[in-house]
């Protein structure tokens, strides 16, 4: 029976693990990313990570992107699922429209949002000007850009959370009614004490999908400001690309890649085990 996962393992081994091992090897060299020659530099690149303020900024931003998007996506996704649970043409239509952004590539979606936040010809500033206010340079500060990036990524993928929660709600619809009859619970109390605990498994899968997406975030940052102003909105992924290609420091970029991999692994394992534990407490 175990033979059935051999094809999957083979593909993963050939197309991911083998290149990954080679890629990790680069982290110990000073390779420039294209020349035939490279020198072994030991742990220099990893040591450099600890003194690199830019990397620290990107690391903090990556955590904000990952955790911020995940939390917002769960709240908004769940609220949408509750609001749109049930039959009816208008609800189905609304569900499809809210899911729409999931269907376009993040590059394209970010570009569309760029039209919104642009300074001179941006759609938001057009409204401000029409109302008699001054234009706002939305993407001119680090914190402002980071916030907008979180919002855009949240809105693009909130549809996935919504659908997972809709499915969860449908699964527990019967149980709720029965429990409510016994309890006489209703409204918010019913939601908090019965619906939410029953949704726990849905919350976990939705969070895993969103969290990994948020921690690997690349396109939105790249399209909005390319990591600017300065380095203030870089995620680790965009910084890796910048070092790898732009600064011709492929070895150092590989070291950052290893660090990102470890970060994502630690955060997701931490969250999954924590969710499991709080689940058992209830």
């Amino acid at each position: 029976m175990n033979l059935m996962y051999v094809p999957a393992i083979a593909m993963v081994a050939i197309f991911m693990i083998y290149p990954l091992v080679q890629g990790v090897g680069l982290a110990f060299t000073n390779w420039d990313g294209y020349s035939p020659t490279k020198a072994f530099v030991g742990f220099d690149n990893f040591a450099r990570l600890f003194n690199d303020k830019t990397f620290l900024t990107a690391l903090i931003n990556t955590l904000i992107y990952g955790v911020g998007c995940t939390v917002l996506q769960q709240i908004i996704g769940l609220a949408l699922a509750v609001a749109l649970d049930g039959a009816g043409r208008s609800k189905a239509f609304a569900r499809a429209l809210i899911y729409l952004p999931v269907l376009v590539s993040p590059v394209v979606m970010s570009m569309m949002y760029y039209f919104l936040f642009q300074y001179d010809r941006g759609a938001l500033n057009d409204i401000l000007v029409a109302l008699g206010f001054d234009r706002i340079a939305w993407l001119s500060t680090g914190p402002g850009t980071v916030t907008i990036v979180v919002l855009i990524n949240t809105l693009q993928f909130v549809g996935i959370s919504m659908v997972i929660y809709l499915a969860g709600l449908q699964g527990i619809g019967q149980e709720i009614n029965e429990a409510a009859e016994v309890d006489g619970a209703r409204g918010l109390r019913l939601f908090r004490s019965i619906t939410l605990p029953l949704l726990r498994p849905a919350i976990i899968s939705s969070m895993i999908i969103n969290l990994i997406g948020g921690l690997k975030l690349y396109d939105v940052v790249q399209v909005l400001t390319g990591g600017g102003p300065g380095y203030s909105s870089h995620s680790v992924s965009t910084l890796i690309a910048r070092s790898y290609f732009g600064q011709q420091a492929a070895g150092y970029a590989s070291a950052m890649g290893v660090a990102l991999f470890v970060l994502i692994a630690v955060v997701s394992i931490f969250l999954v085990t924590r969710m499991d534990r709080t689940g058992k407490d209830i």
Binding site: Y119, D120, R121, A137, W138, S140, P229
Partner: peptide, 14 residues
Amino acid sequence: NKDYSSASEDDMAH
């Protein structure tokens, strides 16, 4: 320009 950080090369041309 106020939108220096987010302006693209395309915006420069515009």
